[in-house]
Design a protein around this nucleic acid. Structure first.
Lengths: 234, 234
DNA sequence: CTCAAAATGTGATCTGTGTCACATTTATTA
DNA sequence: TAATAAATGTGACACAGATCACATTTTGAG
């Protein structure tokens, strides 16, 4: 979708409907700085947004849509680290610890994003403590969930892991017990480190037991209490 | 070790030999604020420093010594998340994402620590962008290493995991190919989510193959290239 | 609409690693 | 220094889940 010169001029971060919590804490000058140094863009389903091992030049703010964060192992297998939803920053994980992106990001559906120059982003953090604090909060929340999942996965049978990821998707990502499943069976498997075949078998079993209701691209959690129990005791 | 009144008065963060990078970015007033609201203390080997599920009231700065960060699962088994060395902050993981500590911290040897009131800590972040930026950098670095380990663990046989943790301890924690092993075999197992018996077997095998040199409480990595290879290809 | 390619489902094996059971060594306490 | 507890080593065995092989369904291109 091409923009007219007028459109480009008009766009300002200060009246963005998808503004992040952190950005809402900026002052007028900082809004302008951000507006002048960020670029809105649209990305089609399946496209790679950031490639791992690339130099970090931009932070990508996800205005709308879902994204998977992943790495490809030396065995060529994909490990999905997490799913990111609207109003998240992509690339934050690597920004403060390194000069290189450690993960790749791919669009699970059509997206609206904003590219933000990293130097501007860093400058905002250094010049606005509240902005920095909000970013720290975002990162902290994300990490708590991710660490929890990693820990849960490490000592859990595959049923427990799968129950766990269903609850994660429902509570944290889609915020509903029923959601459109933008992930293939393979991707669900990659999210918890099990095989595709096992994923199929678990889904069949859970469906038979009335725990979930699935079609190819929709998922509904029925017996939440049972899922909780399975996610804990395997 | 009791302190005299004079000792207490004298202690100032501005001339602490174990000062963190972040604190070195504070101005005079901020130094004083920190000095007035932090408390130096010593902790004996084995003691719990922070208990998970407790309310966050202090951040603990680790001046000297090694600490394990862990949780106890519902199966009563310990999952060690990471080892922390001197000049690290304990509790940062939970501080920005929640009001409750998500992990426990225990001393692997006698420690020197400083308790810092969280409100002061947050105030410093909001009032000093460079301080905030440095904390973000610390958290970022730590996360990169931890995520990498979690990902590596999820699709790797136990030999690969063990090679991986040896390299992690050597490079990241002890910064030497030879180090005092303050962790028991059980704790090494808990760090990578395998059984104690498997740990024993791997150590025996690696020793026989001349890859490492171990005694009960010392570890030396001999064939680093082979360890790298095992950590990648299992 | 047709046909090829991709995704998914399902049964039959095979294997890595946990578990159990016990021996041995090291640490701790009296 | 003996006695007890804790940590570690080691073999035998079981089984969860990966892998393989193939059937079936869905998707997408022309």
């Amino acid at each position: 979708m091409l923009k007219t010169f007028d459109d480009l001029n008009k766009s300002s971060c200060s009246d963005c409907v998808d503004m992040s919590c952190a950005v809402s804490l900026l002052n007028k000058a900082q809004y302008n700085l951000l507006s002048d140094n960020s670029l809105e863009s649209e990305i089609k389903k399946g496209e790679i947004i950031i490639r791992s091992d690339s130099l970090i030049s931009n932070i990508v703010y996800l205005k709308t849509g879902f994204v998977k964060e992943f790495v490809i192992g030396q065995d060529k297998e994909m490990r999905i680290i997490q799913i990111l939803k609207n109003h998240s920053y992509l690339g934050l994980h690597s920004l403060f610890g390194d000069k290189i992106n450690h993960y790749s990001y791919a669009a699970l559906e059509d997206l609206k994003v904003c590219y933000i120059d990293i130097n501007i982003f860093k400058q905002l953090i250094k010049s606005n403590g509240s902005f920095a604090y909000q970013i720290l909060k975002d990162i902290g929340k994300e990490n708590i969930y991710n660490y929890y999942r990693f820990i849960a996965n490490s000592k859990n049978n595959i049923d427990g892991r799968f129950a766990n990821i269903l609850l994660y998707l429902s509570e944290r990502i889609y915020e509903n017990t029923k959601f459109n499943l933008q992930l293939s069976r393979q991707e669900l498997a990659d999210l918890i480190g099990i095989s595709r075949e096992s994923t199929t078998r678990i889904i069949t079993k859970f469906k038979k037991d009335g725990i979930i209701n699935v079609t190819r691209n929709s998922m509904e959690l029925i017996k939440l209490d049972l899922l909780q129990k399975i996610s804990k005791n395997g």
